[in-house]
């Protein structure tokens, strides 16, 4: 046995002995009360946020010339540029809005899905919208750890579900949820889950100071890619630091100016 192994074994024993000094009965009732209090507070905050966002959305629609008549004129047609401010209160809860250096991205990518819009925005296709909302709620409730986002492709009447491709049952749950809308198609896209990308982005953000102090690499912003393919680090030293950043954080990371 090496000295190192011996020290680590001894450390484990000493930690166990130290922890064993702590003994306490579980104050279940007290914890339940605290949990209920927190739940009430969370519900209240979410409700207030949803109301605020709905009010904001209503204001935006009013400025656009009346939401209900959006399909009547070209100026009010669904935008091809995804919006970063969806009207669904639950969506606003998602992401790293409190992390200054982590950009929260909820919009849907363009490219081959140029008309894709995030679930929660108004659409002239109520079936697609309702199906999208249903899918969104189901995967958030049951599969959030494996899920990235759902977008609508209004041209092909398709929902694009980005999720971790593991055997989680998510795909089957989505297919089952879409049964009431047989005309709505679904396309699954393999991406890492949103929580995993958020964890990675937060880790990078947390270590931005170290990069600056140690390597003179100033990380200006960390962004979760809109298509869920990874995390984008923005730094003026992109060219010189790219290799080192990818080596440290893995190939889910891309580096740009």
């Amino acid at each position: 046995m090496t000295t190192e192994d011996g020290f680590e074994e001894e450390l484990a024993v000493r930690l166990g002995a130290r922890a064993a000094r702590v003994g306490a009965g579980a104050p279940v009732a007290e914890l339940r009360v605290a949990g209920r209090r927190r739940l009430r507070r969370t519900v209240a905050v979410r409700g207030a946020a949803a109301v605020a966002v709905l009010a904001l959305g209503a204001g935006v629609l009013t400025q656009l010339g009346g939401g209900g008549s959006a399909a009547l004129g070209p100026a009010a047609a669904p935008s091809r540029t995804p919006s970063p401010t969806p009207s669904d209160g639950r969506l606003v809860q998602r992401g790293a809005e409190n992390d200054i250096l982590v950009t929260r991205v909820l919009s849907c990518p363009g490219g081959s899905f140029a008309s894709a819009v995030p679930i929660g925005l108004e659409t002239p296709q109520p079936e697609l919208s309702a199906a999208g909302q249903t899918v969104e709620h189901i995967v958030r409730d049951g599969y959030d750890d494996h899920y990235f986002s759902t977008c609508r492709d209004t041209e092909t009447n398709t929902l694009i579900v980005r999720r971790n491709p593991g055997p989680t049952g998510l795909d089957a749950a989505v297919a089952q949820a879409l049964a009431p809308w047989p005309a709505v198609k679904v396309k699954f896209v393999d991406t890492p889950s949103y929580p995993s990308l958020l964890t990675l982005a937060r880790e990078i953000r947390a270590e931005a100071g170290d990069w600056s102090a140690t390597y003179k690499v100033k990380i200006v912003n960390v962004e979760i890619a809109v298509d869920g393919t990874g995390v984008i680090i923005h730094t003026p030293q992109a060219e010189t630091a790219r290799e080192q950043l990818i080596k440290q954080y893995g190939h889910l990371v891309s580096v740009g100016l």
Binding site: E30, L31, R32, A34, G35, R36, R37, R38, L39, T42
Partner: peptide
């Protein structure tokens, strides 16, 4: 206790 309160919901 704070962590358990988060689990409660």
């Amino acid at each position: 206790h704070d962590a358990l309160a988060r689990v409660y919901p």
